[in-house]
Computed example of a mutant assay.
Amino acid sequence: MTTMLAHPERGEIRIAAVLQALADPVRLEIVRALARCEDGISCGLLDLGITASTLTHHVRTLREAGVVWVRPQGTSRISTLRRDDLDALFPGLLDGVLAARR
Rank of each mutant, 00 (worst) to 15 (best):
L28C: 05
Q20S: 14
S76C: 09
A35R: 04
E64A: 11
L98P: 03
G74M: 08
W69V: 02
T56H: 08
A17F: 13
H57G: 03
Q73M: 11
V59L: 14
R27K: 06
R27W: 07
G49L: 06
I13H: 07
R63H: 01
V26E: 09
A65E: 01
V18W: 15
M1R: 00
S76W: 03
L5Q: 05
T56I: 06
L94N: 07
H57N: 13
R14S: 10
L55V: 03
G40F: 13
H7V: 12
R14Q: 12
L94S: 08
A17Q: 13
R102D: 06
L45G: 02
L34H: 03
I41C: 12
A65Y: 04
V70R: 07
R27Q: 13
V97W: 15
V70F: 06
I13Y: 02
L93N: 01
T3F: 09
A33K: 01
R63A: 11
G96M: 02
R14E: 14
W69M: 12
L48E: 00
H7E: 02
D85C: 07
R101W: 10
R36T: 03
S42W: 00
P91M: 02
S53P: 11
L5C: 02
G40D: 03
L89N: 07
S76R: 14
A35S: 14
D39H: 09
A23N: 10
D39L: 08
E38P: 04
L93H: 04
R71S: 05
D87W: 10
D47R: 12
A65P: 11
C37I: 11
L34R: 03
D87A: 09
T80M: 10
